[in-house]
């Protein structure tokens, strides 16, 4: 009995109920913006999230170790709850379909309308965040993708990848213009082996880079169909950010 009341007390104190509602509304709004739910459903979704939270409050608070801010912790909890509600099948919003994926992105990226420019900037920011999550591999991925897509490589890209890039001759290698895909990977494998002092095969670099490209595309598209990128449209977005940009 003592434990139950102490759990309840702890649960009550984690975040005030009006803040709980604000957090739930904010999380649901994110799903609405990503078109994972129709606008008309957002209030119901907020109510459902709060209902689930109240139902599981004791357990949620028990699992909280205090390493993160409680509001951020609840945000993460509510995000998963929303995914659960959407995936549960009770909510099926078939009309939320994206336009023809390739065409939509090509149109978007080639358009100069202010609304589209706003979307593109958001997508660019999103891609930068995704790349950041590759942590210590981020600079390598950006450098290799620039080379793979034939974009200009700046000294800052090389410096970010290797402090001794000049000594290792990486600048000379990466300023070569390959004529075929095979030549691209022949150069990249030399770069890897020189910088990492390793002896990997060309295939390993190709497999690694393609795996990262597919991962980035999957993350851009998200599990809730937030977008419909393919390799071509991903390349367009990447070029939008990094073509001509120093760094």
């Amino acid at each position: 009995m003592q434990n139950i009341s102490s759990d309840t007390k702890e649960a009550d104190e984690l975040v005030a109920i009006d803040e709980v509602a604000a957090i739930a509304t904010n999380v649901v709004k994110g799903f609405e913006i990503r078109k994972a739910i129709p606008s008309r459903e957002k209030d119901d979704m907020v109510q459902e999230v709060i209902r689930k939270y109240l139902e599981k409050k004791t357990r949620i608070n028990k699992a909280y170790k205090g390493d993160a801010n409680p509001k951020t912790y609840l945000t993460a909890i509510f995000y998963r709850m929303c995914c659960e509600i959407i995936r549960s099948g009770h909510k099926s919003w078939d009309h939320i379909k994206k336009e023809d994926p390739g065409k939509y992105m090509v149109d978007l990226l080639s358009s100069s309308g202010s609304d589209n420019q706003f979307i593109i900037r958001n997508e660019a920011e999103y891609l930068k965040k995704i790349l950041s999550l590759f942590d210590d591999e981020k600079t390598k991925i950006i450098l290799f993708l620039k080379f793979f897509f034939g974009l200009e490589i700046h000294s800052s890209d090389l410096k970010a990848y290797s402090r001794n890039y000049k000594k290792a001759g990486l600048d000379r290698l990466l300023h070569t213009i390959p004529k075929t895909n095979q030549q691209t990977f022949e150069i990249l494998v030399k770069v890897v082996n020189k910088h990492e002092n390793s002896d990997v095969k060309q295939d390993a670099v190709r497999i690694w880079l393609y795996k990262r490209i597919d991962q980035i595309i999957e993350r851009l598209n998200g599990s809730m169909n937030r977008a419909n990128y393919d390799r071509k449209t991903f390349q367009l977005l990447f070029e939008y950010i990094y073509a001509g940009e120093d760094g």
Binding site: A22, I23, N26, V27, K29, G30, N69, K71, T72, T75, A76, Y79, R80, Y126, K129, I130, L133, Q215, E218, R219, G222, S223
Partner: peptide, 17 residues
């Protein structure tokens, strides 16, 4: 990918808040 997506979504949500 799943956890990466969650990290970005939660970061966006707390920034928005």
């Amino acid at each position: 990918n799943r956890c990466a997506e969650e990290v970005v979504a939660v970061e966006q949500a707390i920034s928005q808040l």
